[in-house]
C-alpha cells in the first residue's frame, strides 16, 4: 500500500505520472514528492512508486 496525500492507495508498481493521472490531475499542474524528496517533472513518467512510499501531490490554490 502507498500513502498518497495522507490516504492509503493501491498504487505500488505504478509510475508517478500514472498515479497523478489516476488522482484526476495533469502532471503539468502538480508537483510530486516521494518520501519527502521531490520527483522532478521530467522523471514522473519513469519513476515507479514502491510499496510503503509516502507520496504528496500538491498544486497551487488561492492564498494570501
Amino acid at each position: 500500500m502507498v500513502t498518497v496525500n495522507g490516504k492509503p492507495v493501491d498504487a505500488a508498481g505504478m509510475t508517478a505520472a500514472a498515479l497523478v493521472e489516476a488522482q484526476g490531475y495533469a502532471c503539468a499542474q502538480v508537483a510530486v514528492e516521494r518520501n519527502e524528496e521531490i520527483i522532478p517533472k521530467a522523471e514522473l513518467g519513469s519513476t515507479v512508486i514502491q510499496d510503503g512510499d509516502v507520496v504528496e501531490i500538491v498544486r497551487f490554490v488561492g492564498g494570501g
Partner: peptide, 17 residues
C-alpha cells in the same frame, strides 16, 4: 499575486493558474 500550495485532492480540478 500570491498563491498557496495545497494537497491536490480529487474534489476540485480547476487550475488557478
Amino acid at each position: 499575486i500570491t498563491l498557496a500550495v495545497r494537497r491536490a485532492n480529487t474534489q476540485e480540478h480547476e487550475n488557478i493558474l
